[in-house]
Amino acid sequence: GKMTGIVKWFNADKGFGFITPDDGSKDVFVHFSAIQNDGYKSLDEGQKVSFTIESGAKGPAAGNVTSL
C-alpha cells in the first residue's frame, strides 16, 4: 500500500536519492523515473512524499512517488 515519508536527499544530476519512511523502516532508494509529475522529475530534501515499495533489481525501491 501507500506509505509516506520525507526525502532524505536527492541528487538531481544523477537522478536518484533516498526517502526516509514515516514508519521508521529502512531508507528507500528512489529513482527519478518513479516520480509522478509532468514536469521536471526531481525531489527536494525534506519534502514530504507518498510512495509504494516496488522490488527492483537492486532491492526495494520507491514507486508512484507523489509530493504531498
Rank of each mutant, 00 (worst) to 15 (best):
G1Q: 08
G1R: 04
G1S: 09
K2E: 13
K2D: 08
K2H: 13
M3S: 09
G5K: 00
G5E: 00
I6S: 09
I6T: 14
I6N: 06
V7P: 00
V7Y: 01
K8G: 03
K8F: 04
W9K: 04
W9I: 04
W9G: 02
W9A: 03
F10V: 04
F10A: 02
F10C: 02
N11S: 13
A12D: 08
A12W: 11
A12F: 10
D13T: 15
K14Y: 09
K14F: 12
K14D: 04
G15Y: 03
G15C: 03
F16T: 03
F16K: 02
F16D: 01
F16H: 06
G17T: 01
F18M: 07
F18R: 03
I19C: 01
I19Y: 00
P21A: 05
D22K: 06
D22C: 08
D22T: 09
D23Y: 08
D23F: 07
D23L: 07
D23M: 06
G24V: 03
G24R: 08
G24N: 09
G24H: 09
S25P: 05
S25L: 07
S25T: 13
K26I: 12
K26R: 13
K26Q: 13
K26C: 06
K26N: 12
D27H: 05
D27A: 07
V28P: 01
V28I: 13
V28A: 03
F29S: 02
V30W: 02
V30I: 08
V30P: 00
F32N: 05
F32C: 06
F32P: 02
S33M: 09
A34Q: 10
A34N: 08
I35M: 05
I35A: 03
Q36A: 14
N37C: 07
N37W: 11
D38F: 10
D38T: 12
G39H: 07
G39A: 09
G39C: 07
G39F: 07
G39D: 08
Y40I: 12
Y40E: 13
K41Y: 06
K41P: 11
K41Q: 10
L43I: 06
L43F: 06
D44S: 15
D44K: 15
E45V: 14
E45W: 15
G46E: 04
G46M: 05
G46R: 06
Q47T: 13
Q47I: 09
Q47E: 13
Q47S: 11
Q47A: 12
K48N: 06
K48Q: 10
K48H: 15
S50Q: 11
S50H: 08
F51H: 01
F51G: 00
T52Q: 07
T52Y: 10
I53P: 04
I53R: 08
I53E: 03
I53Y: 11
E54V: 10
S55G: 12
S55T: 14
S55K: 15
G56E: 11
G56H: 13
A57I: 15
A57L: 13
K58A: 13
K58T: 13
K58V: 09
P60A: 10
P60N: 11
P60M: 13
A61Y: 15
A61P: 02
A61G: 06
A61D: 04
A61M: 15
A62F: 01
A62K: 01
G63P: 02
G63Q: 13
N64R: 04
N64Y: 10
N64C: 06
V65Q: 01
V65I: 05
V65P: 01
V65M: 02
T66I: 13
T66K: 12
T66N: 10
T66Y: 08
S67Q: 13
L68T: 10
L68V: 12
L68W: 05
L68Y: 08
